[in-house]
Design a protein around this nucleic acid. Structure first.
Length: 535
RNA sequence: GGGUCGUUAGCUCAGUGGUAGAGCUGCGGACUUUUAAUCCGUAGGCCGUGGGUUCGACCCCCACACGACCCA
């Protein structure tokens, strides 16, 4: 069989044998102390040919990395070498390398090699290393995807992230370096303010902390069914009871739900709890936290500011849910706005619901959603979701209208906020009038560019109130709501010791990274997103 | 869950109801300043899987698998 009939794998394994025949290992190690390519490039970036020959003729560098390009012009070969932080051209001449030059024909793109030589500049002006000695380190049996065309097949990109990172260098790597910068900035923000970072259980015996379907698992030795956590919330608040007035956790949670461009079954959440603060304090802190992370990101990667359709300029918009509904209806459904009457329509909420259910163009499942509302507070949330939420990006914009602005939607109804503190009676009366048919909570969600980024509230710390809401969750479960929480008696016990007034906050870290780096899919900010098995 | 689109050489993609195509990669050769090097030669395919229609299917039909996008 001739060479041309052999597979790439066979050819490359034969070349590995040639390395061995020349006295090398196909997978050698210990190349000695290396110079990072970036430092070599930085040291000589301003030096011209004359300067290099005159002042740096004695300099010698030892570099190692992957060969990502090779151009063979006969007795002279150009190769591009990439390590974790940079790329540099190797100038490989027959005269300089002597007998080693023959080894070049046993090299392939993708191989890992070490080279020793002095800095020089080619006729075209490119800083290169005039290689004096070359040592192969690791053989690559499989061709790297074309550098020029990249690796376009998204499935392959997610399944073989390693190939994606090689082929789509540096863009893919930059997103994950950006992610690290963002997470580090979040940590720094809390650390600088004396928050304690903690790790709470991810294996939990009860469903709680968020309304979501959990993953089930089992502990064999204890013969005990467990859930992977959907939120760390209830444990973090136990720590507040214990006296950690400021705690935060950045960790993985799992929700057994659909997969989309915004949802991966496992994702990273940031939660923090601050005793003696309120949800209003947290809005200001949220602005600081996010803009601080953004500033640190842009200091390293200014490119991520390009083409943003949103502005993070402070202060951010704050709007009560009731008013968000009013704004949205007045803009695009005046007839309904009249019926809504800035929320006054809730005083006869079932009649108002009938009007909305009859609204023109309402989808059948939306109508069904409204029909299922069994309290005016549920109706408020339903109307917000159906008529206001997906218009936030249009309704709240910079003065010149060119960019959307972040929006804190505040005052969620009690009925849809099982862990949030009920608005104090005097404040509720002052803001909504005496006897308003819906009770609101001290809660906000943050939306940027129309996407939900964070959820926060003044925490419910009355154990009797909390117990009542857990019971309401059980009723929901009876009615078939498989996202409802369990009755967590230990949590009630913790609250019974007395929890200081506290505000708590949760943020989707993956979504924050998506937002700040302009990625459209969560899979572009999760290194190894969940996919069906390969067939 | 619903809809639309996609799956062809290692990679990126064309393609027509009648023997399967290009560029890059690979392999052989030339070349001591290349930058997607260039030039000459050459190899490489169960056209996602399974059924069906047809004299004949990569192409038309059905189902399935996997993926992308949109909607819920």
């Amino acid at each position: 069989m001739t060479d041309s009939h052999r597979s790439i794998d066979e050819v490359r394994r034969a070349k590995a044998d040639a390395w061995r025949a020349a006295g090398h290992l196909a997978f050698g190690n210990d190349p000695g102390e290396l110079h990072p390519i970036a430092t070599v490039s930085a040291a000589h970036k301003d030096h011209d040919v004359a300067t290099l020959d005159r002042d740096h003729a004695g300099a010698e560098y030892r570099v190692a990395g992957r060969i990502i390009a090779m151009r063979d012009t006969g007795k002279l070969v150009f190769a591009k070498l990439r390590d974790g932080g940079g790329e540099i051209q190797l100038f490989l001449s027959a005269k300089e390398l002597g007998a080693t030059f023959a080894l070049l024909k046993e090299l392939d793109m993708g191989d890992i090699v070490m080279a020793v030589g002095r800095p020089m500049r080619t006729r075209a002006g490119e800083l290169s290393i005039m290689v004096r000695s070359l040592r192969p380190l690791s053989k690559s049996y499989r061709p790297i995807p074309s550098e020029w065309y990249g690796l376009g097949e998204v499935e392959t990109r997610y399944r073989q992230r390693y190939a994606d990172m090689i082929a789509n260098h540096p863009d893919v790597g930059d997103v994950f370096r950006a992610r690290a910068i963002i997470v580090r900035a979040l940590r720094a923000w809390f650390d600088e303010r004396d928050f304690i970072e903690v790790e709470t259980p991810t294996l939990q015996t009860m469903r709680g902390g968020a309304n979501a379907k959990p993953f089930n698992t089992h502990h064999n030795a204890l013969d005990m069914d467990l859930y992977l956590r959907v939120a760390p919330e209830l444990y973090l608040k136990r720590l507040i009871v214990g006296g950690m007035d400021r705690v935060y956790e950045i960790g993985r949670v799992w929700r057994n739900e659909g997969i989309s461009t915004r949802h991966n079954p496992e994702f990273t959440i940031l939660e923090f709890y601050q005793a003696y603060a309120t949800y209003e304090v947290l809005m200001g802190e949220t602005e600081e936290l996010v803009t601080d992370a953004d500033a640190k990101l842009l200091a390293r990667y200014p490119k991520y500011a390009d083409g943003r359709s949103y502005s993070l300029a402070r202060p951010w918009k704050r709007v009560r849910m009731l008013d968000a509904i009013t704004d949205a209806l007045e803009r695009r459904a005046p007839a309904l706005a009249a019926q809504w009457a800035k929320g006054e329509g809730l005083r006869a909420w079932e009649a108002t619901r009938e009007v909305f259910m009859a609204a023109e163009g309402l989808q059948k499942d939306h109508r069904e959603y409204l029909r299922k509302c069994s309290a005016p507070g549920e109706l408020v949330y339903a109307l917000y979701e159906l008529f206001a939420e997906h218009h936030l990006v249009e309704d709240y914009r910079t003065a010149d209208g060119s960019q959307s602005v972040p929006v804190f939607v505040t005052d969620y109804p009690f009925d849809v906020s099982p862990l949030a503190r009920k608005k104090d009676a005097d404040k509720q009366a002052a803001q909504y009038g005496e006897g308003f048919p819906v009770t609101f909570t001290d809660r906000f969600e943050l939306f940027v560019e129309g996407r939900e980024l964070a959820n926060a509230f003044s925490e419910l710390n009355d154990p009797d109130d909390q117990a009542e809401r857990f019971r309401a969750q059980l009723v929901n479960r009876e009615k078939g709501d498989d996202e409802a929480m369990d009755f967590d008696a230990d949590y009630i016990r913790a609250l019974s010791y007395g929890m200081p007034p506290t505000a708590g906050f949760g943020l989707g870290v993956d979504r924050l990274v998506m937002l700040l780096t302009g990625q459209k899919s969560i899979r572009d900010v999760v290194l190894f997103p969940l996919l069906r098995p390969e067939t």
